[in-house]
Structure formats: C-alpha cells, structure tokens
Amino acid sequence: MMLSQTQDRICRECDLDFSNLSAVLVNASLKPAGEPSHTDTLLDVVDAIFCSQKVEVERIRLSKYRLAPGVYPDMREHGWAYDEWPDISDRVLGADIIVLGTPIWLGDMSSLARAFIEKLYAHSSQTNDKGQYVFYGKVGGCVVTGNEDGLKHVAAGTLYAMSHIGLTVPPQADCGWIGEAGPGPSYGDEKEDGSGRVGFDNLFTQRNTTFMSFNLLHLASMLKGQGGIPAVGNVRSEWDAGEKPGWPNPEHRKDG
C-alpha cells in the first residue's frame, strides 16, 4: 500500500519507538475471504502506517471463519456444533491494539462486525493478572467504508462497545470513506476517467486515518509503558468479595 506524500513524511519523521507494540486489524467484510475488499484497502493504509513504525501487525478476515452466535468464548460448549472463534481469539486478546474494519449496510455495521463485537463481549467476565477486565490496557479503533450514509453512526456504536468491555479509546479513533450518497464507487475503485483510485486523494479520509493510527500508537505505548491502567477502584474481585471500596463491610459492623 502506497502512503500519500504527507503520510509518508510523517511516518519517516516520527522519532518515537513503537516497536514493542502489536496490532490486529480485523476485516468484517461480507465478501468471501478470497475476494478483494474495499474495507481491506483502507485497512491497508493503517497497516502501512503501523508497519512503518515497526509495529507487529496481524490481519484477520472474519468471513474466513464460522462464528457461532452467542456470547461465550466457545459456543461448542453451549449447544452449537461449530465455533471457530477459539481459533482466533488468542490472537485478538494478545494484541495491544484492536482495529475493527466494517462496511456499511443499511446504514449500520455488517453482521460480521456485530458478531465480532459479541465475541469480544464473550470475554467480559475474564480478567487480567491485576484482576481487571481482560481488555484493560488495550486500545481500540475502527475503520468504516461504504458509499452511503452511516459512518459516524457505525463508529459511535463500535467505539462505545469497545469502551464498554474495557478497551481504551483514544481521540479521533475512527476513520472512513463513504463517497457520495447512493450507489457509486467505493474506496479503492478505479476512477472512470482513469486518473487514479477513488478516495486515495481524499484529504478527510487520509488525514483521519493518519490521526487514528498514530493516536492508537500513542495511547497504546503510554499504557504499556506504565503497565496498563492502575488497578485502583476497577478490580472485579473487590466487588465480588463484597469489599466495596470506601464502604463499610457489613460483616464488621457492630449492632446498634
């Protein structure tokens, strides 16, 4: 993927070290895994920026896997004959940065994007070694593509879900391309006049993609450098054990 001149300059002039970070870029396109995807094309830009900063990047195409409906880590334990989420869950949970890419259909994220969010939620009862929810200390962002309205709506739902399960969302954590409303070219299609690829010269898309990518890197680096989010006031076991921070323990109250 070729970066724009401005993107390339910013990447080359960056003197920060992000080489200890890992990222997973998840594509929720509904197309079969072997077919080209416009969402993949914009994720390629994020990939190129991350790779320029020596970040370890892994790509996952969700349509390659059969994900059983449900919000448990392995739905085969809950009545389904199949669930390939366990084949990829460790790769997702092991990353410092999680980016979900989705096309827009009927003004909303794809069904596979929703399934991915549900699979993240399946791990909401799990904790890290500090007793916090397992996604604490990781950051999330989203990439949205299409040729109809819905970019901000999809981003809002995606980023809220990520935050709710414990991912940290930096400023300007989304980017996208929707072109003109209605049927038309999608990101990366050839222009009719042969002058290049649609969206590649769009300042809004390229700027926001760059902002999102670097903000994800900055926040992930800050969190990793300080060992994640401090485990004060956000540890599940304190509440499960009845030890409400700042509350008197009923077991130790005196009568009267």
Rank of each mutant, 00 (worst) to 15 (best):
L43Q: 10
L43Y: 05
D44K: 07
D44W: 03
D44S: 13
D44N: 14
D44T: 09
D44P: 11
V45Y: 01
V45G: 03
V45C: 05
V45K: 04
V45M: 02
V46G: 08
V46T: 15
V46Q: 10
V46C: 13
A48G: 03
A48D: 05
I49R: 01
I49N: 02
I49L: 11
F50E: 02
F50V: 02
C51I: 05
S52H: 12
S52Y: 07
Q53F: 01
Q53I: 05
Q53R: 12
Q53M: 08
Q53V: 04
K54L: 00
K54W: 00
K54P: 00
V55W: 04
E56A: 12
E56M: 09
V57W: 08
E58R: 15
E58T: 15
E58D: 08
R59G: 05
I60G: 11
I60K: 02
I60S: 10
R61S: 13
S63D: 12
S63Y: 09
S63W: 08
K64Q: 13
K64L: 05
K64A: 15
K64S: 12
Y65G: 10
Y65L: 10
Y65Q: 09
R66G: 07
R66M: 10
L67E: 10
L67P: 07
L67S: 06
A68T: 13
A68V: 13
P69V: 01
P69C: 00
G70P: 11
G70H: 08
G70C: 07
G70V: 07
V71P: 11
V71G: 05
Y72M: 13
Y72A: 15
P73S: 14
P73H: 07
P73R: 12
P73A: 12
P73W: 12
D74A: 05
D74N: 14
D74W: 01
D74C: 03
M75K: 04
M75Y: 07
M75V: 06
R76A: 01
R76Y: 00
R76V: 04
E77C: 07
E77D: 14
H78M: 06
H78Y: 15
H78C: 05
G79T: 14
W80R: 10
Y82N: 05
Y82V: 14
Y82M: 01
Y82L: 10
D83I: 04
E84K: 02
W85P: 12
W85Q: 01
W85K: 00
W85R: 00
D87Q: 11
D87S: 08
D87V: 09
D87Y: 06
I88P: 05
I88G: 09
I88Y: 02
I88D: 06
I88H: 01
